[in-house]
Write a protein that binds this DNA or RNA. Structure first.
Length: 457
RNA sequence: GGCGCGAUCGCAUAGUGGCCGUGCAACGGAUUGCAAAUCCGUCUACCCCAGUUCGAUUCUGGGUCGCGCCUCCA
């Protein structure tokens, strides 16, 4: 049975769905005004893995990952580029989808855009107002009165008093309390019509947190199983979501909160504000997308993940070992869950999505394939890899996958033919020269019983 | 200042109260015309100090160092 670490309880808990056999999961996705970076890649890959494992475990999963397509940065970026908000966000949504697909991330069941759920947001704000949690601030914003919500801080482990003590927040005009957050921002002259919606509180646009309360309750109901996102969203974003959703619906919002760890560069968080980020497409110019996915899944989802070329190179070598074992076994394979490796794999995954341990099983299987040539072990390796969204290509395709620049396959084949001729003539000096030249070009030749094959080093 | 996380073999990442981690790299051997791949073997780690225990890398307390959140951020 599955145990997962619940951020809310700060401890691993047995997973019990609200409705037997069914899982409803919501994950905070991207704000679409720029290319996705590796941090975004991690969220997408991690929760893709979670959804896959839940499905492999027999659950009927409804997975929603939202898209934030209206906020300060988007408005500013669109203005800078001299284009409409919609044009900007449409473009980056398309880029995001390309990146996700490359990384083997399956489409969530729904990818709602914030701008399409404004009525639902207004509905929640209305309920909050009637329940006494919302108030119209002096500057015509509508704010949430944090002190009115008894459970405030339960997710992040913060108390209102501590937050006040360490207060570094600019006190925005109109707020009754510095910790209050905005539900509805009143429209400003400078903002485009595209960023304004009518509301009972005047024209304006949604605050950051309200969209997730609205979209999740609309698509999954007011009470659902799993809510995920990056660790940096735990506070204030998720804390505020709880305050909004529970304040409006009077119901428990989410049973299990999951937060993935950061991607780091030189032991520092990779982030937009630090400017130390690598975009996914930047990295994909240098590394195969499956290597990146493998790299992400090789670490536990809650651990920090240090990014560097050396680590990606290492991941590439490791994945190469797996694919090398799969050479010659390119059939479609289903998992035999009764088999011992599969059971270890399951136990690892059931232990808070222990992908690093699950991968050890993959390497054990690879060793067995190499030792025995057992087709069943190879099939099991490929099938279990598939549960993680890995190892599904023909092995040769991975091993020969061309980097941006490199020798063409035709040129390589020609050289190999020349070498074979040289070997036949016992002209080993020429044969070795060809081997060395190819090696210098990043091509490794492997002479086997079935002839010469090659791969890219 | 408040709250939280982490410190494991050369590198990276798991995990466990006593016995096999795993990948990469390195070294030796087998194999190969030479290689590569593969196999066998070697290298046998757990920040420091106390405590609990027959026994701690694993539990408890203290310390040191690193990181994160408290502000937009996946």
């Amino acid at each position: 049975m599955l145990k997962l670490y619940n951020s809310l309880a700060r401890t691993p808990q047995e997973f019990v769905p609200i409705e037997p056999g069914r899982v409803r999961m919501y994950v905070c996705g991207m704000t679409v005004y720029d290319y996705c970076h590796l941090g975004h890649a991690r969220v997408m890959v991690v929760f893709d893995m979670v959804a896959r494992w839940l499905r492999a475990s027999g659950y009927n999963v409804t997975y929603v990952r939202n898209i934030t397509d209206i906020d300060d940065k988007i408005i500013r970026r669109a203005a800078e580029k001299g284009e409409s908000i919609r044009t900007l966000t449409d473009r980056f949504i398309a880029f995001m989808n390309e990146d996700a697909a490359a990384l083997g991330v399956l489409r969530p069941d729904a990818e709602p855009r914030a701008t399409e759920f404004v009525p639902q947001m207004l509905d929640i704000i209305g309920k909050l107002e009637r329940n006494g949690y919302a108030y119209a601030a002096g500057n015509r914003d509508v704010c949430y009165s944090v002190r009115k919500f008894a459970g405030y801080g339960k997710l992040s482990g913060k108390s209102i008093e501590d937050l006040r003590a360490g207060e570094r927040v600019d006190v925005q005009e109109g707020k009754q309390d510095p910790l209050d957050f905005v539900l509805w921002k009143h429209a400003k002259e400078s903002e485009p019509a595209e960023a304004k919606w009518d509301s009972p509180w005047g024209a304006g646009r949604p605050g950051w947190h309200i969209e997730c309360s609205a979209m999740s309750s609309q698509l999954l109901g007011p009470h659902f199983d799993i809510h995920g996102g990056g660790q940096d969203l735990q506070f204030p974003h998720h804390e505020n979501e709880i305050a909004q959703s529970e304040g409006a619906h009077g119901d428990t919002f989410v049973n299990y909160w999951m937060h993935n760890g950061f991607v780091r560069v030189d032991d520092e968080k990779m982030s937009k504000s630090l400017g130390n980020f690598f975009t996914i497409r930047e990295v994909l110019k240098q590394y195969d997308a499956e290597v990146v996915r493998f790299f992400i899944l090789r670490a536990h989802y809650r651990s920090p993940l240090n990014y560097s070329d050396a680590h990606l190179d290492d991941a590439r070598q490791a994945l190469t070992r797996l694919y090398t074992a799969l050479k010659g076994f390119d059939g479609v394979a289903a998992v035999d869950w009764h088999e011992a490796h599969a059971q270890r794999f399951r136990a690892a995954m059931d232990n808070d999505f222990g992908t690093p341990e699950a991968m050890e099983v993959l390497f054990d299987l690879a060793g067995e394939v190499n030792r025995t040539g057992d087709a069943k072990a190879a099939a099991q390796l490929k099938a279990l890899g598939g549960v993680l969204g890995l190892l599904q290509r023909p092995a040769v395709e991975f091993l020969q996958a061309a980097p941006a620049s490199g020798m063409s396959n035709e040129a390589i084949d020609a050289q190999i033919a020349a070498r074979i001729a040289a070997k036949k003539a016992k002209n080993f000096a020429d044969a070795d020269r060809i081997r060395d030249e190819l090696k210098a070009a990043g091509i490794v030749l492997e002479d086997g019983p079935a002839g010469t094959t090659w791969r890219r080093a």
